[in-house]
Design a binder for these strands. Structure first.
Lengths: 206, 206
DNA sequence: CACAGCAGGTGACAAATGTCATTTGATTTT
DNA sequence: AAAATCAAATGACATTTGTCACCTGCTGTG
């Protein structure tokens, strides 16, 4: 199984190389230190799996991954990162990366690589924990920061369901005017302008 | 690494058992044929990984997985299925299963199990392909069915960004009235009532 | 007790939204 | 050339929406 390693810290790539080459099935064809390297090396060497850091100087890992996947949709790219940043995770999934691991658990790296090689997708523990949240619909996640009450949350959900004020009022046994008042304060708290922005906010962030 | 297999087809569990035991690291502690078996066996034997079919007679795999995870949040459960059903995928992720594979690729099963054992999450190829779609945000997928034109799509995206009609008009070099007209026909085509429903529709279905 | 705080409500108002009929100019079709 | 088609616009209209000021009980706390 042929690999390429990309990380802008030379220490990391060399360390990884020794760890990985301890497994007889794995061969590190080359390593690079930038997104540009990644694209060039991938095209030239056609590895089975590409291991790449996300944060890098010139071209970041995500962009490089996107470029590579555009040319070869079957490319197997495993992204590494130090911190689990929700935004990165979603982007990585969208562009079609085959995995997303935290750098810490090097011990867990080898089975992940082998799974990716067979075409499967792998996520590290910390990412796994966040996944259910990213898939919307659970409960009050980052809304807590905004001091949103239970009733307000219920109204937000109504809006995010596409209900009118009247319908929300009926559902919650309130008057339409009250729903409007609530909505007004919700919008102020969240610094949004209208119900549509609220729905978008809720569906994308919660 | 100790495993438990659950499938309501005895043929499958026995076949799986022989395949898996070929690997010296894997031991099958027991196998069962129902969700109830799964819960009981898991509690008694505390396996490292539980392999379970989703569709089963009495208690289905998802419910059983949920029950097990409620008692032991660290349980490693790998779900198997014959068809990739979007709804199942999302549910599985939400309840915190560690993996979701199609039954076909038995050859790929072993690396997946090992990755799951280390706490990572694994998805089969077909699921991987669907994931970006489930995470919304690409382009015109099922909108095509509704005969939505390019310009209409641009307006829909504007709405889904939380823009007002005036803002959309400015962005597209149209008059506000025109935007309203477009929006009106879009809503009619999609059988929706207002822009908020449209935003919800777009963000959840596209 | 008085007073503040809070959940819920009312009424009024401006702005935004959605609908519809109708017009204009350009392009295509016959 | 006449007719049909279409993108874009307009104006009028009823609704919905968001805001604001203010009222009404109820509850707790000094």
């Amino acid at each position: 199984m042929d690999l390429i390693l990309i990380d802008d810290d030379l220490l990391v790539t060399t360390a990884l190389k020794t760890i990985l080459e301890a497994d007889p099935e794995l061969h590190v064809l080359a390593s690079g230190c930038s997104g540009k390297d990644a694209v060039a090396l991938y095209e030239r060497l056609q590895p089975d799996v590409l291991l790449m850091d996300i944060r890098m100087k010139d071209v970041d890992g995500l962009t490089a991954a996107q470029a590579i996947l555009a040319k070869d949709p079957n490319a197997r790219i495993l992204l590494l990162t130090t911190f689990s940043d929700d935004e990165y995770i979603v982007k990585a999934l969208k562009i079609g990366a085959c995995g997303y691991l935290l750098k810490q658990d090097y011990s867990h790296l080898i089975p992940a690589i082998k799974a990716v090689y067979t075409g499967q997708t792998v996520f590290g523990t910390e990412i796994t924990e966040r996944l259910p949240l990213l898939l919307r619909g659970t409960q009050k996640p980052n809304l807590i920061e905004y001091q949103i009450s239970e009733k307000e949350l219920a109204i937000i959900k109504g809006v995010a369901d596409g209900l009118s004020n009247r319908e929300i009022a009926e559902a919650l046994y309130l008057s339409e005017g009250t729903v409007r008042n609530y909505l007004s304060t919700i919008l102020a708290k969240l610094e949004l302008r209208d119900r549509t922005q609220l729905a978008v906010f809720y569906l994308t962030r919660c």
